[in-house]
């Protein structure tokens, strides 16, 4: 295997580590059956940026995201959020799930307000907050619907609204659009970018789609598998305020896609 280990261990490119909201240091994940999912992964996530973890399936990108979320305890290494070590889930991070993770017995309104419900926020207050974010993600009018009455795209909008309504600094999105059909996925990608212009969040986004990663990200972190390691970081550098069509035709967009593909394909066999 021709993994470039000199790049792997160093949180490359971004020198302004002081403004990193999340710092991962030496994250190793080894399962009892001997499989090493992640080895010595170190990363800095700059505040206010959207960083994508991209790699083939089995590269540990979802595992890394769940470690950052505090849902999985790593075998070794440390995650720091706002310079505090992570020992579990916390109000500074909110998770968006691949399969939406909506409670089928609860309405959109209750699902979106669930984080605040768990914190004991009074009903009226939490529902007002939930309605605000339901509106922001474009789900107005569906407050009283149940998840099974919604399309996949709408369900993920609800999942996103739930993550936003707990007012976390960081959104952790685990392949959020992969269960959604292609056209709707594009729409959701565009809507996510315009939403993030309003809501100043740091986002870590896991995907296996190169186009999705480049389109959405300020920075793309490439991971390889067996074991999962960081091989490269790419900053596409397009103008984030341009229209979606302009971004997709931008030279830098196309170059970044090519660059990432040529990197990744050597690990695929």
């Amino acid at each position: 295997m021709n993994t470039n280990s000199s790049i792997a261990a160093v949180p490359a490119v971004n020198d302004t580590t002081s403004d990193a909201i999340i710092k991962a240091r030496g994250i190793t994940m080894r399962y009892p059956n001997g499989v090493t999912a992640l080895e010595e992964v170190s990363l800095d996530i700059p505040r206010g940026e959207l960083v994508t973890l991209l790699g083939p399936s089995g590269c540990g990108k979802t595992t890394l995201l769940k470690i950052i979320a505090g849902l999985i305890e790593p075998t070794a290494g440390e995650i720091r959020v706002n310079d505090k070590t992570v020992h579990g889930p916390g109000p500074d991070r909110a998770f968006v799930f691949q399969d939406f993770a909506l409670m089928p017995w609860a309405t959109v309104l209750r699902n979106v307000a669930f984080g605040l419900e768990l914190r004991g926020v009074p009903r009226e207050k939490r529902e007002a907050v939930a309605r605000h974010y339901i509106n922001e993600v474009g789900l107005s009018g569906f407050e009283d619907k149940y998840p099974n009455e919604l399309s996949g795209g709408m369900r993920q909008r609800a999942g996103l609204a739930r993550a936003l309504s707990v007012d976390a600094d960081v959104l952790l999105m685990d392949e959020p659009f992969s269960a959604i059909d292609e056209q709707m996925r594009r729409k959701l990608q565009e809507d996510l970018l315009s939403l993030l212009r309003v809501e100043k969040k740091t986002v870590i986004f896991v995907t296996h789609s190169i186009e999705e990663a480049v389109y959405l990200s300020d920075e793309v972190v490439l991971l390889t598998r067996h074991p999962g390691k960081v091989v490269k970081t790419v900053r596409p550098g397009m103008d984030r305020n341009a229209s979606p069509d302009e971004i997709r035709r931008d030279r830098r967009y196309l170059d970044a896609v090519d660059d990432i593909w040529s990197q990744l394909k050597q690990y695929l066999r």
Binding site: P89, A94, F95, F97, A101, F114, L118
Partner: peptide, 18 residues
């Protein structure tokens, strides 16, 4: 029980009883 529902509740800070 759907695992991701449990993870969802945990990530939102649910207690064991909740």
């Amino acid at each position: 029980i759907n695992r991701s529902l449990l993870e969802m509740a945990r990530s939102l800070g649910a207690s064991r009883w909740q």
